[in-house]
Amino acid sequence: TGEEYIAVGDFTAQQVGDLTFKKGEILLAIEKKPDGWWIAKDAKGNEGLVPRTYLEPYS
C-alpha cells in the first residue's frame, strides 16, 4: 500500500508508461523516485509514472 495524493492539475501521458489523470483524482503513490516522477495507481487500478509536482498529500 502507498500514500494517497490528490491531483492539483490535469496531466496527459507524454509517453508510454505515464499515467493520465485529472485534477481532483486521488492517486496512490507506489514508489517515490528521486527524479520527481513517481509510480502511482488510480482508482481504476491503472498504474504508471506521474510528475510529483501535480500531487499534494490527501488527508
Rank of each mutant, 00 (worst) to 15 (best):
48 G>V: 03
28 L>I: 15
37 W>S: 05
13 A>C: 07
38 W>I: 07
38 W>C: 04
4 E>V: 14
29 A>D: 00
35 D>Q: 04
1 T>Y: 14
12 T>A: 09
23 K>L: 07
34 P>V: 10
34 P>N: 13
42 D>W: 00
36 G>L: 05
43 A>P: 08
18 D>L: 14
46 N>D: 08
2 G>L: 14
26 I>L: 09
59 S>E: 11
43 A>Q: 13
21 F>M: 05
7 A>H: 00
20 T>Y: 04
29 A>H: 02
32 K>T: 06
27 L>F: 08
51 P>S: 07
21 F>R: 00
34 P>T: 11
5 Y>L: 04
20 T>P: 10
49 L>G: 07
28 L>K: 10
43 A>V: 10
59 S>N: 14
43 A>Y: 09
34 P>K: 10
11 F>P: 00
29 A>R: 04
3 E>K: 09
52 R>M: 15
37 W>Q: 06
25 E>T: 08
26 I>Q: 03
35 D>S: 09
5 Y>H: 04
19 L>T: 01
7 A>C: 08
35 D>W: 05
56 E>K: 12
31 E>R: 10
10 D>K: 03
16 V>T: 11
27 L>W: 01
56 E>G: 05
54 Y>G: 04
1 T>H: 14
16 V>W: 10
1 T>A: 13
59 S>M: 12
15 Q>Y: 09
9 G>W: 15
2 G>A: 12
12 T>F: 13
4 E>K: 14
45 G>E: 04
15 Q>N: 14
6 I>M: 08
46 N>C: 08
44 K>A: 13
49 L>I: 08
27 L>A: 00
32 K>D: 03
7 A>D: 00
6 I>Y: 07
40 A>I: 07
50 V>R: 01
21 F>Q: 00
17 G>T: 07
16 V>C: 11
37 W>R: 08
18 D>S: 11
28 L>E: 07
40 A>H: 02
12 T>C: 11
28 L>S: 07
38 W>V: 06
13 A>V: 03
32 K>C: 06
44 K>L: 12
54 Y>A: 08
29 A>V: 15
18 D>W: 15
45 G>W: 02
44 K>N: 13
29 A>N: 02
31 E>W: 11
19 L>Q: 00
44 K>W: 15
5 Y>G: 00
37 W>M: 09
44 K>C: 13
51 P>F: 12
23 K>C: 11
12 T>Y: 13
54 Y>K: 10
43 A>G: 10
1 T>E: 13
21 F>G: 01
41 K>H: 07
52 R>E: 15
2 G>I: 12
8 V>A: 06
48 G>F: 03
46 N>M: 08
3 E>Y: 10
42 D>F: 00
13 A>I: 03
29 A>Q: 03
17 G>V: 04
5 Y>C: 03
33 K>Q: 09
